[in-house]
Nucleic acid binder design. Sequence first.
DNA 1: CCGTGTGAACAAATTCACAGCC
DNA 2: GGCTGTGAATTTGTTCACACGG
Lengths: 211, 211
Amino acid sequence: MTTLLGVPEVVIDRLPVYARMLAILESQGRQVVSSQELGDELGVTPAQIRKDLSYFGRFGKQGRGYNVQHLTGELRRILGLDQEWTMVLVGVGNLGRAILSYRGFAPEGFKIIAAFDTHSDTVGRTLGGIRVYNVKNLPQFLKNSPADIGIVAVNAVAAQEVADILVGCGIKGLLNYAPVALRVPDGTQLKDIEPVLALQSMTYYLKGTSP
Amino acid sequence: MTTLLGVPEVVIDRLPVYARMLAILESQGRQVVSSQELGDELGVTPAQIRKDLSYFGRFGKQGRGYNVQHLTGELRRILGLDQEWTMVLVGVGNLGRAILSYRGFAPEGFKIIAAFDTHSDTVGRTLGGIRVYNVKNLPQFLKNSPADIGIVAVNAVAAQEVADILVGCGIKGLLNYAPVALRVPDGTQLKDIEPVLALQSMTYYLKGTSP
DNA sequence: CCGTGTGAACAAATTCACAGCC
DNA sequence: GGCTGTGAATTTGTTCACACGG
Protein backbone atom coordinates (compact mmCIF):
# COMPACT_ATOMS: atom_id res chain seq x y z
CA MET A 1 0.00 0.00 0.00
CA THR A 2 1.30 3.39 -1.06
CA THR A 3 -0.15 6.64 -2.22
CA LEU A 4 -0.66 7.07 -5.94
CA LEU A 5 2.15 9.56 -5.99
CA GLY A 6 5.46 8.48 -4.53
CA VAL A 7 5.94 5.37 -6.60
CA PRO A 8 9.64 5.20 -7.37
CA GLU A 9 10.50 6.05 -10.96
CA VAL A 10 12.48 2.82 -11.37
CA VAL A 11 9.26 0.94 -10.67
CA ILE A 12 7.37 2.89 -13.31
CA ASP A 13 10.16 2.17 -15.76
CA ARG A 14 9.79 -1.57 -15.20
CA LEU A 15 6.02 -1.76 -15.62
CA PRO A 16 6.08 -1.47 -19.42
CA VAL A 17 8.54 -4.35 -19.53
CA TYR A 18 6.16 -6.49 -17.51
CA ALA A 19 3.23 -5.38 -19.64
CA ARG A 20 5.04 -6.28 -22.84
CA MET A 21 5.92 -9.78 -21.63
CA LEU A 22 2.39 -10.32 -20.34
CA ALA A 23 1.00 -9.34 -23.75
CA ILE A 24 3.20 -11.99 -25.35
CA LEU A 25 2.03 -14.60 -22.87
CA GLU A 26 -1.55 -13.53 -23.46
CA SER A 27 -1.13 -13.91 -27.22
CA GLN A 28 0.14 -17.41 -26.57
CA GLY A 29 -3.08 -18.22 -24.76
CA ARG A 30 -1.45 -18.36 -21.34
CA GLN A 31 -4.08 -17.96 -18.60
CA VAL A 32 -2.03 -17.64 -15.43
CA VAL A 33 1.57 -16.75 -14.59
CA SER A 34 3.50 -16.60 -11.32
CA SER A 35 5.99 -13.93 -10.39
CA GLN A 36 8.64 -16.65 -10.54
CA GLU A 37 7.85 -17.54 -14.16
CA LEU A 38 7.55 -13.92 -15.24
CA GLY A 39 10.84 -13.17 -13.51
CA ASP A 40 12.56 -16.05 -15.27
CA GLU A 41 11.44 -14.72 -18.65
CA LEU A 42 12.65 -11.20 -17.92
CA GLY A 43 15.72 -11.80 -15.80
CA VAL A 44 14.20 -10.13 -12.77
CA THR A 45 13.65 -11.48 -9.24
CA PRO A 46 10.11 -12.60 -8.38
CA ALA A 47 10.22 -10.51 -5.23
CA GLN A 48 10.83 -7.40 -7.28
CA ILE A 49 7.84 -8.07 -9.49
CA ARG A 50 5.57 -8.66 -6.52
CA LYS A 51 6.84 -5.58 -4.73
CA ASP A 52 6.47 -3.43 -7.83
CA LEU A 53 2.90 -4.56 -8.36
CA SER A 54 2.06 -4.06 -4.68
CA TYR A 55 2.42 -0.31 -5.15
CA PHE A 56 -0.79 -0.37 -7.17
CA GLY A 57 -2.96 -3.09 -5.71
CA ARG A 58 -3.40 -6.80 -5.20
CA PHE A 59 -3.61 -8.43 -8.57
CA GLY A 60 -2.68 -12.03 -7.78
CA LYS A 61 -4.21 -15.04 -6.13
CA GLN A 62 -2.24 -16.96 -3.52
CA GLY A 63 -1.26 -20.39 -4.61
CA ARG A 64 -2.06 -19.63 -8.27
CA GLY A 65 -0.38 -16.50 -9.50
CA TYR A 66 -1.66 -13.72 -11.75
CA ASN A 67 -4.37 -13.88 -14.35
CA VAL A 68 -2.46 -12.84 -17.45
CA GLN A 69 -5.24 -11.03 -19.23
CA HIS A 70 -6.38 -9.18 -16.13
CA LEU A 71 -2.90 -8.07 -15.09
CA THR A 72 -2.07 -6.93 -18.63
CA GLY A 73 -5.16 -4.76 -18.59
CA GLU A 74 -4.44 -3.37 -15.16
CA LEU A 75 -0.87 -2.42 -16.08
CA ARG A 76 -1.99 -0.79 -19.30
CA ARG A 77 -4.57 1.19 -17.36
CA ILE A 78 -2.04 2.21 -14.70
CA LEU A 79 0.42 3.38 -17.35
CA GLY A 80 -2.22 5.19 -19.36
CA LEU A 81 -1.85 2.87 -22.33
CA ASP A 82 -5.60 2.43 -22.64
CA GLN A 83 -5.74 5.64 -24.65
CA GLU A 84 -4.09 6.99 -27.76
CA TRP A 85 -1.28 9.50 -27.42
CA THR A 86 -0.49 12.13 -30.02
CA MET A 87 2.99 13.32 -30.87
CA VAL A 88 4.62 15.99 -32.98
CA LEU A 89 8.07 15.53 -34.46
CA VAL A 90 10.53 18.39 -34.81
CA GLY A 91 13.47 17.86 -37.15
CA VAL A 92 13.00 16.10 -40.46
CA GLY A 93 16.60 15.31 -41.34
CA ASN A 94 18.01 11.83 -41.65
CA LEU A 95 17.03 10.90 -38.13
CA GLY A 96 13.60 12.51 -38.23
CA ARG A 97 12.71 10.71 -41.43
CA ALA A 98 13.75 7.42 -39.88
CA ILE A 99 11.47 8.11 -36.92
CA LEU A 100 8.61 9.00 -39.27
CA SER A 101 8.98 5.68 -41.02
CA TYR A 102 9.38 3.68 -37.79
CA ARG A 103 6.57 1.14 -37.56
CA GLY A 104 6.80 0.54 -33.82
CA PHE A 105 4.89 3.51 -32.40
CA ALA A 106 1.45 3.18 -33.98
CA PRO A 107 0.63 -0.36 -32.80
CA GLU A 108 1.26 0.80 -29.23
CA GLY A 109 -1.05 3.76 -29.54
CA PHE A 110 1.52 6.49 -30.18
CA LYS A 111 0.58 8.54 -33.21
CA ILE A 112 2.67 11.20 -34.91
CA ILE A 113 0.21 13.81 -36.16
CA ALA A 114 2.60 16.30 -37.73
CA ALA A 115 6.26 17.08 -38.36
CA PHE A 116 8.11 20.39 -38.31
CA ASP A 117 11.35 21.68 -39.78
CA THR A 118 12.97 24.89 -40.96
CA HIS A 119 14.32 23.70 -44.29
CA SER A 120 12.23 24.90 -47.17
CA ASP A 121 12.92 21.70 -49.10
CA THR A 122 11.14 19.48 -46.59
CA VAL A 123 8.45 21.91 -45.43
CA GLY A 124 5.24 21.31 -47.35
CA ARG A 125 6.10 17.72 -48.22
CA THR A 126 4.40 14.62 -46.88
CA LEU A 127 6.73 11.93 -45.52
CA GLY A 128 5.53 8.56 -44.33
CA GLY A 129 2.01 9.93 -44.48
CA ILE A 130 2.90 12.86 -42.20
CA ARG A 131 2.72 16.47 -43.32
CA VAL A 132 5.80 18.61 -42.69
CA TYR A 133 5.20 22.20 -41.58
CA ASN A 134 7.46 25.14 -40.92
CA VAL A 135 8.48 25.19 -37.29
CA LYS A 136 7.23 28.78 -37.10
CA ASN A 137 3.71 27.40 -37.32
CA LEU A 138 4.23 24.98 -34.42
CA PRO A 139 2.50 27.14 -31.76
CA GLN A 140 -0.44 27.84 -34.04
CA PHE A 141 -0.72 24.18 -34.99
CA LEU A 142 -0.69 23.02 -31.37
CA LYS A 143 -3.38 25.54 -30.48
CA ASN A 144 -5.70 23.88 -33.00
CA SER A 145 -4.49 20.30 -32.52
CA PRO A 146 -2.95 19.80 -29.09
CA ALA A 147 -0.40 17.01 -28.86
CA ASP A 148 0.75 15.10 -25.80
CA ILE A 149 4.37 14.47 -26.64
CA GLY A 150 7.10 16.21 -28.64
CA ILE A 151 9.87 14.31 -30.37
CA VAL A 152 13.13 16.24 -30.62
CA ALA A 153 15.06 15.05 -33.65
CA VAL A 154 17.15 18.09 -34.50
CA ASN A 155 20.90 18.43 -34.00
CA ALA A 156 22.48 19.02 -30.61
CA VAL A 157 22.85 22.76 -31.15
CA ALA A 158 19.19 23.38 -31.92
CA ALA A 159 17.74 20.87 -29.46
CA GLN A 160 17.39 23.13 -26.42
CA GLU A 161 15.68 25.82 -28.45
CA VAL A 162 13.24 23.29 -29.86
CA ALA A 163 12.60 21.86 -26.40
CA ASP A 164 11.88 25.35 -25.08
CA ILE A 165 9.40 25.99 -27.89
CA LEU A 166 7.61 22.70 -27.28
CA VAL A 167 7.46 23.32 -23.54
CA GLY A 168 6.25 26.84 -24.20
CA CYS A 169 3.39 25.41 -26.25
CA GLY A 170 2.26 23.34 -23.29
CA ILE A 171 3.81 20.01 -24.27
CA LYS A 172 4.42 18.01 -21.09
CA GLY A 173 6.45 15.11 -22.48
CA LEU A 174 9.61 15.13 -24.59
CA LEU A 175 11.29 12.23 -26.33
CA ASN A 176 14.78 13.49 -27.10
CA TYR A 177 16.97 11.95 -29.79
CA ALA A 178 19.53 14.77 -29.78
CA PRO A 179 22.87 14.04 -28.12
CA VAL A 180 22.62 16.74 -25.51
CA ALA A 181 21.42 17.07 -21.91
CA LEU A 182 18.21 19.06 -22.23
CA ARG A 183 16.95 21.22 -19.37
CA VAL A 184 13.21 21.15 -18.90
CA PRO A 185 11.02 22.59 -16.14
CA ASP A 186 9.73 20.48 -13.28
CA GLY A 187 6.63 18.65 -14.30
CA THR A 188 7.82 18.11 -17.85
CA GLN A 189 8.73 14.54 -18.64
CA LEU A 190 11.95 13.95 -20.53
CA LYS A 191 13.23 10.67 -21.91
CA ASP A 192 16.45 10.44 -23.87
CA ILE A 193 17.24 8.01 -26.64
CA GLU A 194 21.02 7.92 -26.65
CA PRO A 195 22.65 5.05 -28.51
CA VAL A 196 26.06 6.72 -28.36
CA LEU A 197 25.95 7.13 -24.57
CA ALA A 198 24.88 3.49 -24.30
CA LEU A 199 27.91 2.46 -26.37
CA GLN A 200 30.22 4.74 -24.43
CA SER A 201 29.39 3.15 -21.11
CA MET A 202 29.46 -0.33 -22.62
CA THR A 203 33.05 0.11 -23.72
CA TYR A 204 34.13 0.55 -20.11
CA TYR A 205 33.27 -3.11 -19.57
CA LEU A 206 34.57 -4.25 -22.96
CA LYS A 207 38.05 -2.81 -22.39
CA GLY A 208 39.15 -5.86 -20.39
CA THR A 209 37.92 -8.24 -23.08
CA SER A 210 39.88 -9.87 -25.90
CA PRO A 211 39.24 -8.16 -29.23
CA MET B 1 39.66 5.45 -3.47
CA THR B 2 38.13 2.23 -4.68
CA THR B 3 39.24 -0.83 -6.59
CA LEU B 4 38.97 -0.68 -10.36
CA LEU B 5 36.22 -3.25 -10.24
CA GLY B 6 33.22 -2.55 -8.07
CA VAL B 7 32.36 0.84 -9.52
CA PRO B 8 28.55 1.05 -9.55
CA GLU B 9 27.04 0.76 -12.99
CA VAL B 10 25.04 3.97 -12.48
CA VAL B 11 28.35 5.78 -12.12
CA ILE B 12 29.70 4.32 -15.36
CA ASP B 13 26.50 5.36 -17.10
CA ARG B 14 27.01 8.97 -16.03
CA LEU B 15 30.63 9.30 -17.09
CA PRO B 16 29.86 9.62 -20.82
CA VAL B 17 27.45 12.43 -19.99
CA TYR B 18 30.19 14.27 -18.13
CA ALA B 19 32.65 13.58 -20.94
CA ARG B 20 30.29 14.95 -23.54
CA MET B 21 29.70 18.18 -21.63
CA LEU B 22 33.41 18.58 -20.96
CA ALA B 23 34.12 18.19 -24.67
CA ILE B 24 31.70 21.01 -25.38
CA LEU B 25 33.33 23.23 -22.76
CA GLU B 26 36.74 22.34 -24.18
CA SER B 27 35.63 23.30 -27.69
CA GLN B 28 34.55 26.65 -26.25
CA GLY B 29 38.05 27.20 -24.95
CA ARG B 30 37.09 26.75 -21.33
CA GLN B 31 40.15 25.96 -19.20
CA VAL B 32 38.73 25.08 -15.79
CA VAL B 33 35.37 24.00 -14.47
CA SER B 34 34.05 23.30 -10.97
CA SER B 35 31.74 20.46 -10.04
CA GLN B 36 29.16 23.13 -9.27
CA GLU B 37 29.28 24.60 -12.77
CA LEU B 38 29.33 21.21 -14.46
CA GLY B 39 26.41 20.11 -12.32
CA ASP B 40 24.44 23.23 -13.23
CA GLU B 41 24.90 22.47 -16.92
CA LEU B 42 23.79 18.87 -16.57
CA GLY B 43 21.17 19.06 -13.85
CA VAL B 44 23.22 16.95 -11.47
CA THR B 45 24.42 17.73 -7.94
CA PRO B 46 28.06 18.78 -7.58
CA ALA B 47 28.52 16.18 -4.83
CA GLN B 48 27.51 13.44 -7.23
CA ILE B 49 30.03 14.51 -9.80
CA ARG B 50 32.83 14.65 -7.23
CA LYS B 51 31.86 11.29 -5.76
CA ASP B 52 31.65 9.68 -9.19
CA LEU B 53 35.07 10.96 -10.18
CA SER B 54 36.56 9.90 -6.85
CA TYR B 55 36.10 6.24 -7.86
CA PHE B 56 38.86 6.71 -10.40
CA GLY B 57 41.30 9.19 -8.94
CA ARG B 58 41.85 12.77 -7.91
CA PHE B 59 41.46 14.93 -10.94
CA GLY B 60 40.73 18.31 -9.42
CA LYS B 61 42.57 21.04 -7.59
CA GLN B 62 41.16 22.47 -4.40
CA GLY B 63 40.02 26.02 -4.69
CA ARG B 64 40.12 25.88 -8.50
CA GLY B 65 38.19 22.98 -9.94
CA TYR B 66 39.00 20.62 -12.80
CA ASN B 67 41.19 21.24 -15.81
CA VAL B 68 38.72 20.69 -18.62
CA GLN B 69 41.13 19.26 -21.16
CA HIS B 70 42.79 16.94 -18.67
CA LEU B 71 39.54 15.61 -17.21
CA THR B 72 38.06 15.04 -20.67
CA GLY B 73 41.08 12.96 -21.56
CA GLU B 74 40.99 11.00 -18.33
CA LEU B 75 37.32 10.16 -18.72
CA ARG B 76 37.78 9.08 -22.31
CA ARG B 77 40.65 6.86 -21.25
CA ILE B 78 38.67 5.37 -18.35
CA LEU B 79 35.73 4.62 -20.65
CA GLY B 80 37.94 3.20 -23.39
CA LEU B 81 37.03 5.96 -25.83
CA ASP B 82 40.66 6.51 -26.77
CA GLN B 83 40.38 3.66 -29.25
CA GLU B 84 38.14 2.81 -32.19
CA TRP B 85 35.42 0.22 -31.72
CA THR B 86 34.12 -1.96 -34.52
CA MET B 87 30.52 -3.06 -34.89
CA VAL B 88 28.48 -5.38 -37.06
CA LEU B 89 24.81 -4.74 -37.74
CA VAL B 90 22.28 -7.54 -38.08
CA GLY B 91 18.97 -6.70 -39.71
CA VAL B 92 18.81 -4.39 -42.71
CA GLY B 93 15.12 -3.54 -42.75
CA ASN B 94 13.74 -0.08 -42.21
CA LEU B 95 15.38 0.29 -38.83
CA GLY B 96 18.71 -1.24 -39.86
CA ARG B 97 18.99 1.08 -42.83
CA ALA B 98 18.32 4.06 -40.57
CA ILE B 99 21.11 2.92 -38.28
CA LEU B 100 23.46 2.49 -41.24
CA SER B 101 22.80 6.05 -42.31
CA TYR B 102 23.05 7.49 -38.79
CA ARG B 103 25.88 9.99 -38.69
CA GLY B 104 26.42 9.98 -34.94
CA PHE B 105 28.50 6.85 -34.42
CA ALA B 106 31.58 7.48 -36.54
CA PRO B 107 32.68 10.80 -34.98
CA GLU B 108 32.70 9.06 -31.60
CA GLY B 109 34.88 6.22 -32.81
CA PHE B 110 32.20 3.61 -33.38
CA LYS B 111 32.51 2.08 -36.82
CA ILE B 112 30.07 -0.31 -38.50
CA ILE B 113 32.22 -2.64 -40.61
CA ALA B 114 29.54 -4.88 -42.08
CA ALA B 115 25.82 -5.60 -42.11
CA PHE B 116 23.95 -8.90 -42.26
CA ASP B 117 20.47 -9.98 -43.28
CA THR B 118 18.60 -12.98 -44.63
CA HIS B 119 16.64 -11.28 -47.40
CA SER B 120 18.13 -11.96 -50.80
CA ASP B 121 17.15 -8.49 -52.00
CA THR B 122 19.40 -6.68 -49.54
CA VAL B 123 22.23 -9.24 -49.34
CA GLY B 124 25.01 -8.27 -51.70
CA ARG B 125 24.06 -4.62 -51.80
CA THR B 126 26.03 -1.74 -50.31
CA LEU B 127 24.05 0.65 -48.11
CA GLY B 128 25.51 3.80 -46.62
CA GLY B 129 28.91 2.53 -47.69
CA ILE B 130 28.45 -0.74 -45.79
CA ARG B 131 28.35 -4.12 -47.49
CA VAL B 132 25.40 -6.39 -46.65
CA TYR B 133 26.15 -10.10 -46.27
CA ASN B 134 24.00 -13.16 -45.69
CA VAL B 135 23.71 -13.80 -41.98
CA LYS B 136 24.91 -17.36 -42.63
CA ASN B 137 28.34 -15.90 -43.28
CA LEU B 138 28.44 -14.01 -39.99
CA PRO B 139 30.60 -16.54 -38.07
CA GLN B 140 33.03 -16.82 -40.96
CA PHE B 141 33.19 -13.03 -41.34
CA LEU B 142 33.88 -12.48 -37.64
CA LYS B 143 36.64 -15.09 -37.71
CA ASN B 144 38.46 -12.98 -40.31
CA SER B 145 37.41 -9.56 -39.03
CA PRO B 146 36.58 -9.64 -35.34
CA ALA B 147 34.18 -6.97 -34.17
CA ASP B 148 33.65 -5.61 -30.69
CA ILE B 149 29.93 -4.91 -30.71
CA GLY B 150 26.87 -6.35 -32.40
CA ILE B 151 23.84 -4.23 -33.23
CA VAL B 152 20.57 -6.15 -33.17
CA ALA B 153 18.11 -4.50 -35.55
CA VAL B 154 15.84 -7.41 -36.47
CA ASN B 155 12.25 -7.89 -35.34
CA ALA B 156 11.33 -9.04 -31.84
CA VAL B 157 10.82 -12.65 -32.89
CA ALA B 158 14.26 -13.09 -34.45
CA ALA B 159 16.20 -10.98 -31.94
CA GLN B 160 17.08 -13.69 -29.40
CA GLU B 161 18.33 -16.00 -32.15
CA VAL B 162 20.50 -13.23 -33.58
CA ALA B 163 21.80 -12.38 -30.10
CA ASP B 164 22.71 -16.03 -29.54
CA ILE B 165 24.60 -16.15 -32.84
CA LEU B 166 26.53 -12.96 -32.05
CA VAL B 167 27.37 -14.17 -28.56
CA GLY B 168 28.39 -17.54 -30.01
CA CYS B 169 30.83 -15.74 -32.30
CA GLY B 170 32.51 -14.16 -29.29
CA ILE B 171 30.86 -10.75 -29.41
CA LYS B 172 30.89 -9.30 -25.88
CA GLY B 173 28.69 -6.26 -26.39
CA LEU B 174 25.20 -5.99 -27.84
CA LEU B 175 23.24 -2.87 -28.73
CA ASN B 176 19.66 -4.04 -29.00
CA TYR B 177 17.01 -2.11 -30.94
CA ALA B 178 14.46 -4.94 -30.91
CA PRO B 179 11.52 -4.54 -28.54
CA VAL B 180 12.21 -7.65 -26.49
CA ALA B 181 14.06 -8.53 -23.29
CA LEU B 182 17.12 -10.38 -24.53
CA ARG B 183 18.86 -12.96 -22.36
CA VAL B 184 22.63 -12.91 -22.61
CA PRO B 185 25.29 -14.74 -20.59
CA ASP B 186 27.15 -13.11 -17.72
CA GLY B 187 30.04 -11.09 -19.01
CA THR B 188 28.18 -9.99 -22.12
CA GLN B 189 27.19 -6.34 -22.15
CA LEU B 190 23.67 -5.53 -23.27
CA LYS B 191 22.19 -2.09 -23.83
CA ASP B 192 18.67 -1.60 -25.07
CA ILE B 193 17.39 1.25 -27.22
CA GLU B 194 13.70 1.27 -26.48
CA PRO B 195 11.79 4.39 -27.51
CA VAL B 196 8.45 2.66 -26.98
CA LEU B 197 9.26 1.65 -23.40
CA ALA B 198 10.42 5.20 -22.77
CA LEU B 199 7.09 6.52 -24.00
CA GLN B 200 5.13 3.93 -22.06
CA SER B 201 6.62 4.96 -18.75
CA MET B 202 6.32 8.65 -19.65
CA THR B 203 2.56 8.33 -20.10
CA TYR B 204 2.19 7.32 -16.47
CA TYR B 205 3.20 10.84 -15.52
CA LEU B 206 1.30 12.50 -18.36
CA LYS B 207 -2.03 10.93 -17.39
CA GLY B 208 -2.70 13.59 -14.77
CA THR B 209 -1.95 16.41 -17.23
CA SER B 210 -4.37 18.41 -19.33
CA PRO B 211 -4.39 17.27 -22.98
C1' DC C 1 1.37 -27.42 -0.69
C1' DC C 2 1.96 -22.94 -3.68
C1' DG C 3 2.54 -18.43 -4.43
C1' DT C 4 1.05 -13.66 -3.09
C1' DG C 5 1.66 -9.52 -0.41
C1' DT C 6 4.40 -7.17 2.83
C1' DG C 7 6.94 -5.60 6.96
C1' DA C 8 11.62 -6.10 8.27
C1' DA C 9 16.42 -6.60 7.07
C1' DC C 10 19.68 -5.48 3.96
C1' DA C 11 22.18 -3.23 0.20
C1' DA C 12 23.01 0.51 -2.83
C1' DA C 13 23.11 5.16 -4.02
C1' DT C 14 22.91 9.95 -2.94
C1' DT C 15 23.68 13.83 -0.22
C1' DC C 16 25.77 16.10 3.64
C1' DA C 17 29.33 18.41 5.79
C1' DC C 18 33.81 19.38 6.70
C1' DA C 19 38.99 18.74 6.86
C1' DG C 20 42.51 19.98 3.96
C1' DC C 21 44.81 22.20 0.27
C1' DC C 22 45.29 25.79 -3.39
C1' DG D 1 37.91 32.35 0.16
C1' DG D 2 36.92 28.57 -2.94
C1' DC D 3 36.46 24.00 -4.14
C1' DT D 4 37.98 19.15 -3.92
C1' DG D 5 37.76 14.58 -1.90
C1' DT D 6 35.62 11.66 1.24
C1' DG D 7 33.87 9.39 5.47
C1' DA D 8 29.38 9.55 7.74
C1' DA D 9 24.51 10.18 7.57
C1' DT D 10 20.58 9.75 4.99
C1' DT D 11 17.67 8.32 1.52
C1' DT D 12 16.32 5.12 -1.83
C1' DG D 13 15.84 0.61 -3.66
C1' DT D 14 16.09 -4.54 -3.34
C1' DT D 15 15.78 -8.90 -1.22
C1' DC D 16 14.34 -11.84 2.52
C1' DA D 17 11.23 -14.59 4.86
C1' DC D 18 6.94 -15.69 6.45
C1' DA D 19 1.84 -15.15 7.59
C1' DC D 20 -2.02 -15.98 5.17
C1' DG D 21 -5.37 -17.32 1.60
C1' DG D 22 -6.49 -20.53 -2.23
